[in-house]
Design a protein around this nucleic acid. Structure first.
Lengths: 252, 252
DNA sequence: GGCGTTAATTGGTCAGGCCAGTTGACCAGC
DNA sequence: GCTGGTCAACTGGCCTGACCAATTAACGCC
């Protein structure tokens, strides 16, 4: 308690402000930002401060600074930004449904082009999953490796990234809190069997089977999830605002 | 070929050096780093440069900067690699392939649950596309609306976001530059027909047809793209560095 | 010994300057 | 007409030197 008084450092306030302009679309993707000198003047701060703020955004991957040329918006959402102020994290159910639709298509594709190395990748993840079934952190990492591993079999960087990002959303504090209530050695062992079925279908080159197995896995995940919480989340409460009052995102 | 010339910016070199000292344990967790002024002197750089490097490490969560007190090591390893040197913005071909796989699954799903309002959404986008065929910006926006519109039919926020983000990657300066060479009223009119086929299949509730139509559309897009540039990109050049000066990745 | 005061230390910010890379306009030469 | 080169304007990269504000520890008073 008595937390406030943060007194955020200036360069962070500047970074927040620019980040907001990007997120809101006020600064379109690909667009060039004003020159550092102009930004400094417009924001009434010095150029070093602007530079520090821009470096934050660059590390977050939002902008691309090109010497002699300018500063360009690269993408709208910070993939791994401080999760707390990222985009309105869609609800767990929506996430699982989206994963069911997307990942079963990827699994289907993977079944058509899986080589021995790819299968080895999945087997390695499954092995770790079964041996670390009591270590929440390790088993989660293995689970992630399995799902992104399928995308790796397809050999497409975009798919790998998207799969990983969707998985990582469960790391969100909110989601993690929920998951901790129903994830345990038992559910992990159940999931392990479903994973095994996916792996076998892919290894057999059975596209339809891989698709069905993945769909089954994620649908059952959804079911396990809902059984633990009943209807408490299935409603539309999903999309509650988490943009705070933001009393003073910028007190200037 | 002719890739190097990296010439990393100074503050990145400094950040790397300090990061290494932390990772190697030379700087223990909890330990205080030398003052900014001392670091600057020891590294033979100016204080602003040291500050910029420290901000990078702070964003990565490795150190904790406390005003008036000092700089402290918080943890040894960065949880997630810095976004900037993680995903090297996948190449256009990979992106189109990923979209083909993901969006055809979404279209398939949408065909199973499309209502009149959903179809109206698509029709509205198609109308804008056909009328603005000469306005590059407007037609692109309509195209986006069409693709995200399909995700909206499914009614899943995660799908909408993912679809939108993938689409937005073409706004990247690099991608946009490429696209500007082959996108024109003619190709847009061709694409319009493909879109129409997707819309019709979804409206008819024909899941397999919607899937096929979407796959066709994105595969043809890929083809149109490659025909404009020949093999120059189809090879492994895909994953060429686009970090840094990008000596040649985008001078077209 | 306990406690307020003070002064040294440290990060935060600013101003102004120079250098180097980028870009596009302009021009000479084939 | 197109290629290639030059040049100037612009932009980010980096530096110097300075002052302010928060922190911390030494100091001295009670």
């Amino acid at each position: 308690m008595f937390s406030p008084v943060e007194s955020r450092r200036l360069y962070r306030q500047v970074a927040d402000q620019i980040r907001l302009m990007i997120a809101s679309g006020e600064l379109a993707i690909g667009q060039r930002l004003p020159a550092e000198r102009d930004l400094a003047e417009q924001l009434s701060v010095s150029r070093p401060t602007v530079r520090e703020a821009l470096i934050v955004l660059e590390v977050e991957g939002l902008i691309n600074i090109r010497m002699g040329s300018g500063i360009y918006v690269v993408r709208r959402h910070a993939a791994h930004a401080p999760a707390s102020e990222r985009d309105p994290v869609e609800g767990p159910f929506e996430l699982l449904q989206a994963r069911a639709i997307i990942e079963c298509a990827i699994a289907e594709e993977a079944a058509g082009c899986a080589g021995p190395e790819g299968i080895a990748l999945l087997d390695e993840a499954l092995m770790r999953m079964s041996s670390d079934v009591n270590d929440a952190g390790a088993v989660l990492a293995a689970d992630r490796a399995f799902h992104t591993g399928i995308a790796m079999i397809v050999g497409n960087a975009t798919l790998i990234r998207v799969t990983g990002e969707m998985f990582d959303m469960r790391m969100t504090p909110y989601f993690a809190k929920l998951a901790s209530h129903f994830e345990g050695p038992t559910t992990w062992r159940t999931a392990l069997g479903e994973h095994q079925a996916i792996r076998d279908a892919i290894a057999a080159g059975d596209a339809a089977g891989a698709r069905a197995a993945m769909r089954t896995h994620l649908t059952l995940s959804q079911k396990r999830f809902s059984e633990s919480f009943g209807e408490e989340f299935s409603g539309e409460e999903e999309r509650g605002r988490n943009k705070g009052p933001a009393k003073g995102t910028d007190k200037f």
